[in-house]
């Protein structure tokens, strides 16, 4: 049984208080927004994909629990610079591993929210 000490580890709280690329990306080429219907957490992710099929920039915005917001920050930090194919290959399991702390199934949904949004954003060109 995971304790909250594991869930709220220091590096997670660091991402919560000092997130990577929280905000808007006016040059975004792709974007998607979704929510966790259980708790109402919302995450919007905006991606800039360049001609070589690389994620050249990414920003997130939203409102939710420590886990959903810190995991969005961690995910984007890890994904910027990667190719679209690499992002597609980045699995849910990889996301949980990146987060680090062990989560109960209910809280895994919080952690996987931004991962789901990124996967969908790859197929959601802006203005389409």
């Amino acid at each position: 049984m995971p304790s909250e000490e594991e869930i709220y580890q220091d590096h997670i709280l660091d991402h919560y208080e000092d997130p990577f690329h929280r905000g808007k990306l006016p040059t975004a080429t792709h974007a998607h927004e979704d929510k966790n219907p259980l708790c109402g957490d919302v995450v919007r992710i905006e991606l800039q994909l360049d001609r070589d099929g690389r994620v050249s920039d990414a920003y997130f915005s939203g409102d939710g629990c420590v886990i959903s917001q810190a995991s969005a920050s961690m995910l984007l930090e890890a994904l910027v610079g990667k190719t679209v194919d690499e992002v597609k290959e980045f699995s849910a399991e990889d996301m949980l591993k990146l987060y680090g702390a062990r989560l109960t199934p209910n809280r895994q949904k919080c952690c996987l929210l931004s991962w789901r949004v990124v996967q969908q954003a790859l197929y959601s060109p802006v203005g389409a």
């Binding site: 304790s3 709220y8 919560y16 957490d41 939710g64 629990c65 420590v66 886990i67």
Partner: peptide
């Protein structure tokens, strides 16, 4: 801060 779910989780502890 934090979000309601974090509060509930910590109160549960």
């Amino acid at each position: 801060r934090p979000h309601a779910h974090d509060i509930a989780q910590l109160l549960d502890r």
